[in-house]
Computed example of a mutant assay.
Amino acid sequence: MAEGSADMVRISPAGDSAVTVEFADGIDDAINRDVIALDRSLAETPIPGVRETIPSYRSLLVFYDPARIRGASLTERLAARAQTLKPEETPARRFCVPVCYDGPDMDELAALKAMTPAALAAAHAEGHYRVHMIGFAPGFAYLGGLPEQLATPRLDVPRQLVEASSVGIGGAQACITSLPGPSGWRYIGRTPLTLFDAGRKEPAFFRAGDLISFFAVTADDHAALARRAAAGEMIAEAL
């Protein structure tokens, strides 16, 4: 155990060429900021031999080249780096994302919450969201910051196919899908934003640590924005 910017961090081997830096056991914005701060610190001031880093909700997976640095030495250097983190100084990108609130679970979820669909959409759009991690599928964005009143268990029976760019709720989390696929989340809308495109310089649109707000658009607005996005135009307003 090593003392870090969170109360304690634990650094453990993950195979023969990676270590996991764990900041906590639960999901928390402050802990996630520590994870992102360490990730960016390693990007800005690399440790020789580190090949790749993958942030999650509460930990950072660090891949390294054993021919260039030993795991024990890397562990010591990561522990020392964790002690000097200043997550409050880590800049965050901010985006305002359009959503058409016509998802397949909107009416059922609104009834479950004793709200009108319009009220549920408004409550969702009032949230302040943080990208905790990218995972499950390339570009899939896991979001913290869902208003407590909207937290809802996932479906008992997952759907076999959910379209890309769907906006969903799963427990106390929110998400935006990146590729078509199965899911047990409850989906209340869709955005014309393309979250993953292998042809872009950065294939995943969002990064862990980004801040997101949503605003409602009509189905016609969604279609128009989708055409603009397909033409390469930026449709998520950077704040």
Rank of each mutant, 00 (worst) to 15 (best):
A92S: 14
T53S: 14
R58L: 06
C96V: 14
P87Q: 08
T84N: 13
G103N: 05
V99E: 15
R94H: 15
R70Y: 06
A82Y: 00
R93C: 00
F63C: 08
A123W: 11
E76V: 03
Y57P: 08
L78F: 04
L85W: 02
Y57C: 10
T84E: 09
L61Y: 03
R58C: 02
Q83H: 09
C100D: 13
E126Y: 06
T116S: 14
R77S: 00
T53C: 05
R77Y: 00
I134Q: 00
P98R: 06
A118M: 07
D65L: 11
G103H: 07
G127N: 04
Y129V: 03
A119H: 08
I69A: 01
A123C: 13
Q83W: 01
R70C: 02
H128F: 06
K86Q: 15
R70W: 06
T84A: 13
L78R: 04
H128R: 11
P87M: 09
R77P: 00
A72K: 09
C100F: 14
C100I: 04
M115Y: 07
A67M: 12
F95M: 03
A72D: 08
D105N: 08
S59L: 09
R77L: 06
G103L: 09
T90C: 15
Y57F: 15
R130F: 11
L112W: 13
K86W: 01
E52Q: 11
G127C: 03
R81W: 02
R94M: 12
K86I: 13
R68N: 08
L120V: 09
E108M: 08
E88N: 14
E89D: 14
R81Y: 02
V99Q: 15
H132N: 10
D65N: 12
H132Y: 15
I134G: 04
A110M: 06
L60W: 02
D102P: 11
A125E: 05
D65K: 08
P66V: 03
H124F: 11
S73H: 08
A80R: 14
Y57H: 13
A80D: 13
P117H: 12
D65G: 08
P98F: 00
K86S: 15
R93D: 00
D102C: 13
P87T: 05
L85E: 03
L74E: 01
V99K: 14
A121K: 07
A114Y: 07
P66N: 05
D102S: 15
L60I: 07
G71P: 03
G127T: 07
E52K: 11
G135R: 08
P87A: 08
K86F: 02
Q83E: 05
R94P: 11
F95K: 01
V131F: 07
L60Q: 11
D102T: 15
L61D: 06
I69S: 02
A122G: 13
G135E: 05
A118H: 10
M106D: 02
L60D: 01
V62K: 12
L60V: 02
P55D: 01
P55F: 00
E76P: 09
T90K: 05
R68S: 08
S56D: 06
E108P: 01
V97P: 09
T84D: 13
C100W: 14
E88K: 09
E89R: 15
D107F: 06
E76A: 12
I54S: 02
P55Q: 02
A92H: 11
A123N: 07
F63D: 09
E76F: 05
G103A: 06
R81G: 00
G71H: 03
A72E: 12
E76Y: 01
A121I: 04
G127H: 05
G127V: 07
L120D: 05
L78N: 04
T53G: 10
